[in-house]
């Protein structure tokens, strides 16, 4: 066993772990942060995505011992950090307790079973940090490491667009099912 010092969601936590322990194991089993999910334990599904210094990484492929001193953000840390930043406005409703990306996912129906959502929301948050008005193709690309089996990704993409619109103070784009007449794709598009 090794003694590790990890900075998770703003708190420094000391714990003992085997040298081969993954960040996923430590987060779930030692720190009780079960929002980080194990879907495959092989780096295929993205359900264990966390942010490492703001960048999405797969916790199941990350050795805990190697990320000491780095800033680790799990899904549990997203909303509290957001709340700290807007501490002057006390939380009133359920929606205010959520980070804007979490809120957009909830509102848009992007959550079905919810198992992939922690990873998906963290990947989306990282995307919006570097590009606050991403094109649809950029969103698809940025989320392509997070498998979702429920939604067909449509409402997830709409949630990211919604978060982006919200951030920019724009009117929300209509969702696919809200459009009474869908325009056929033009011949010139690819």
């Amino acid at each position: 066993m090794e003694v590790l010092s990890l900075k998770v969601n703003g708190d420094t936590r000391c714990l003992a772990a085997a040298p081969q322990a993954t960040l996923l194991e430590v987060l779930r089993e030692e720190l009780g942060l079960t929002g980080c999910k194990q879907g495959c334990d092989k780096g295929d599904c993205g359900a264990c995505t966390v942010l490492l210094d703001g960048q999405p990484v797969l916790a199941c492929l990350t050795l805990a011992a190697l990320v000491q001193g780095r800033e680790i953000t799990t899904i549990e840390g997203l909303a509290p950090a957001h709340r700290r930043r807007c501490a002057e406005s006390p939380c009133a409703s359920k929606q205010d307790k959520l980070h804007p990306v979490q809120d957009a996912f909830d509102e848009a129906g992007a959550l079905q079973c919810g198992f992939c959502q922690s990873g998906m929301i963290l990947s989306a948050t990282a995307l919006l940090q570097r590009d606050d008005d991403p094109k649809r193709e950029t969103i698809r690309e940025a989320l392509s490491g997070n498998l979702c089996r429920c939604t067909g990704y449509t409402q997830i993409i709409e949630a990211v667009e919604r978060a982006s619109d919200e951030h920019a103070g724009r009117e929300h784009r209509p969702r696919a099912w809200e459009q009474p007449a869908t325009e056929p794709a033009g011949e010139g598009e690819s």
């Binding site: 079960t34 799990t74 549990e76 979490q102 959550l111 919810g114 959502q117």
Partner: peptide
């Protein structure tokens, strides 16, 4: 009308407990 899911916030924040989350 569009209604949020009863467990939407819990799932969005990682609070929702799945079987393997129980110990």
């Amino acid at each position: 009308k569009p209604q949020r899911k009863v467990d939407g916030a819990a799932k969005a924040t990682g609070e929702a407990l799945f079987t393997d989350d129980l110990a």
